[in-house]
């Protein structure tokens, strides 16, 4: 007979498959795991999407004689679509990659980037605030100040939030700074640049109305689609509702709030109060308490026998 071990006999041998040794997972644990796994996979998809978009935008625009101020409608639309999942940092990467490629940072501009006046690492630059010392790289990002303005106009509209946690991402639309907004109408009208609208308000007025109508129609259609998908308006479409079980109740006050006030120290015999109650003899001076005292005496009389 083999010697008996003094150690506790383990219920599960160490070589047994892992699943049997762990506690049975509850449905809630499983839901949580799936929820987080979904988030990670969404994140990965978005990152890949951004990478693909940057690869495409590297060789943008297709034709070498495209004009950044008047991009063709398909180019502009494609750019707007591709830029949608970007964060500002992704946009910076796009600029970096395009510059490494030797082209202007603005994706709708086919021209090469500007060359700095010399190969020195730092350069002087005159600004309104005086002379600034800037990196050579900073000077060589754009082909012109105009392009810089256009590109940064796009950048400030990008959402800081990463695309995988954005809510209802389809609703937002990136505007471009373009001079030929009319040509983009057939695809989807761009919201017009304000300066041009101001300069020639009469001619553009009808166009503007058309654009607004088209946008409204598109928004309506998107809302219809969302309802068709079974979403409620204003709800995150991919949210897992199972994990949120708590009911949130707002405490709403029905009376307007009143600031607290101190009992007046000067008038009334507050110094006589014993835990807020003013004994009878002293209370007579105050008219309000006076009535109460009278009531009390009447009541007292009523209950007297006889």
């Amino acid at each position: 007979m083999a010697p008996k071990s003094i150690l506790k006999t383990p219920t599960v041998s160490t070589n047994a498959p892992l699943s049997s040794s762990t506690k049975p997972v509850t449905q809630r644990q499983r839901n949580t795991a799936i929820y987080h796994a979904n988030i990670i996979s969404q994140q990965k998809n978005v990152e890949n999407e951004v990478l693909e978009a940057i690869l495409t935008l590297l060789d943008f625009p297709a034709s070498p004689d495209a004009d950044p101020s008047r991009p063709s409608a398909p180019d502009a639309l494609r750019f707007q679509e591709l830029i949608m999942p970007f964060q500002p940092s992704d946009y910076d990467s796009l600029l970096e990659e395009r510059n490494l490629n030797g082209s202007c940072g603005y994706a709708l501009c086919p021209r090469p980037k500007r060359r700095a006046p010399s190969t020195a690492r730092k350069h002087f630059r005159d600004t309104t605030k005086g002379v600034e010392i800037v990196d050579k790289k900073m000077l060589e990002v754009w082909c012109s100040d105009d392009c810089a303005r256009r590109a940064l106009y796009v950048k400030v509209q990008l959402n800081e939030e990463p695309a995988w946690i954005r809510q209802g991402g389809a609703s937002e639309k990136i505007e471009l700074m373009v001079d030929n907004a009319e040509e983009h109408h057939n695809a989807l009208p761009l919201r017009l640049k304000r300066e041009t609208a101001k300069a020639t308000p009469k001619i553009l007025h009808d166009d503007e109305d058309d654009a607004a109508a088209a946008w409204a129609a598109r928004d309506d259609a998107l809302a219809d689609l969302a309802i068709e998908r079974g979403e409620k308006p204003g709800r995150l479409s991919k949210a897992n509702k199972d994990l949120i079980t708590a009911q949130i109740k707002e405490r709403v006050g029905n009376a307007p709030p009143v600031p607290p006030s101190l009992p007046s120290q000067t008038m009334g015999p507050s110094h006589m109060a014993i835990e807020g109650h003013i004994p009878g003899s002293a209370g007579r001076a105050v008219p309000v308490s006076d009535e109460e005292e009278d009531d009390d005496t009447q009541d007292w009389d009523k209950h007297l026998p006889g």
Binding site: I54, L55, L58, E96, E97, L100, N101
Partner: peptide, 9 residues
């Protein structure tokens, strides 16, 4: 000097 997407591809 700098290796970007294009060089890697």
């Amino acid at each position: 000097e700098n290796v970007g997407l294009k060089q890697l591809r």
